[in-house]
Design a protein around this nucleic acid. Structure first.
Lengths: 83, 83
DNA sequence: ATTGATTTGTTCGTATGTATT
DNA sequence: TAATACATACGAACAAATCAA
């Protein structure tokens, strides 16, 4: 499994699919591709938002979804870890 | 004045009266019944929306009405206070 | 012990698009 | 046409936790 470079995936605001769902897939791909190994921190919400040109809240929405699925885990003041 | 339990009032989506107006009455009752005293925070928009099974925007619509009437006051990032 | 920077979660106001009535 | 209702999306603000200087 290769390594997904930043910007390899982009967000389409005009796609029928909601942006937050696209972000779920983007982050999931970061994990499954091995770009962010188990136990490691994801980029910060702010970083992801800037990188993919979406809002703060949209990234948080996506992360909340992945957290509920048990794919990531949050530590307040630290960041979001891959489980 | 008694205490209104959660769910004591329900929203009827099939009533002729708009849902947002029903929500105005629900929130007003929370205040006049003393469930939420002066100076205290109302439940969050999200909480109210889930509790009464209406959309986010509908709760906000109702709150905008009550705000204009001077019954509640908003502090961004905190919540909606009873005046 | 304090301060400042970073991070997440939560909060609300506003705006847009779609569907329904 | 207009009002209603929902889902989505953005922007901004606040509190609390963490960490480093």
């Amino acid at each position: 499994m290769g390594c997904l470079r930043w910007g390899a995936v982009t967000i389409d605001h005009d796609a029928g699919e909601p942006v937050w769902q696209q972000m779920v897939r983007v982050i999931r791909d970061m994990i499954t591709s091995g770009e962010v190994p188990k136990g490691k921190l994801l980029p910060s919400v702010r970083t992801l938002a800037q990188r993919y040109e979406v809002s703060d809240g949209t990234v948080k929405h996506a992360l909340a979804e992945l957290r509920q699925e048990g794919l990531v885990e949050t530590v307040n003041g630290r960041g979001v870890y891959v489980r």
